[in-house]
Design a protein around this nucleic acid. Structure first.
Lengths: 120, 120
DNA sequence: TTGACATATTCCCATAATGGAATATAATAA
DNA sequence: TTATTATATTCCATTATGGGAATATGTCAA
């Protein structure tokens, strides 16, 4: 596959960033935090149709965010969230930006508190 | 806009997760860590065409990841990365999964070291 | 073997994204 | 005012998405 010149959009299956850009897949990941689940179990818990569950699981599986294990005709899917580390670390490089904001909010609050005290 | 039934894909401009799913936009964010920049400056530094820079900046701006300030005909864009906090925190809820993996790797290494020592 | 169950895959549709090229808009300078 | 510079927007072609429905595949049970 050539995704250099004529790329319409980074395919969902290319990397973890794209895989979790889909809210439903984040929902799925969240659900799997409670343990390995069967496709049908997931479908029922989330109220989705089975093919949709399979498709979203397939995407997560391709980028390595879930693993599956077949037990008879049932396939158990479980988290393999190590791939999220990359995202966690990338966002961490921006941490100072929201901390600056938090500091500003905190200062604002303290300022207000001082003003209130002075009025006593 | 109705994005309930006939959604082809979560639009890029919907949330921060989608905005940063595009690698070029992450590159742009990375660049802006060094400070506010002009559209043309960005284009030159990254080797992109000006309209592409403007478009990607527009997406980032819509989800609030950058702010812009016009100084004459030049528009300076700077990071406003607080929106990434949401992502950082979501991935953090999965931290134990990669830590488990790290522990396993570490144990494996220690095991190997013990075996090597025993052989001395 | 056959039927039922669990999951995966395929086809279709509507939507939208990206890059490129061209063009529009806005601001400055001559 | 007009030319130039900086940026934004529009149009196009290509690609891919996600849901639904139907169907294929695989596994077990009778």
């Amino acid at each position: 596959m050539e995704y250099n010149n004529v790329m319409a959009r980074t395919p969902t299956t290319f990397d973890v960033f794209n895989a979790i850009a889909e809210p439903k897949r984040r929902e799925l990941m969240n659900l799997l935090q409670s343990g390995a689940r069967t496709v049908n179990a997931i479908a029922e818990m989330l109220g989705w149709r089975q093919p949709q569950v399979s498709k979203h699981l397939a995407v997560l599986h391709r980028v390595g965010l879930v693993q599956s294990e077949a037990r008879g005709r049932e396939h158990y899917y479980r988290l393999d969230a190590a791939g999220l580390r990359e995202i966690h670390e990338w966002t961490a490089t921006f941490e100072e930006y929201w901390e600056h904001q938090l500091v500003r909010i905190k200062q604002h609050a303290e300022e207000k508190a001082r003003m209130a005290k002075r009025r006593d």
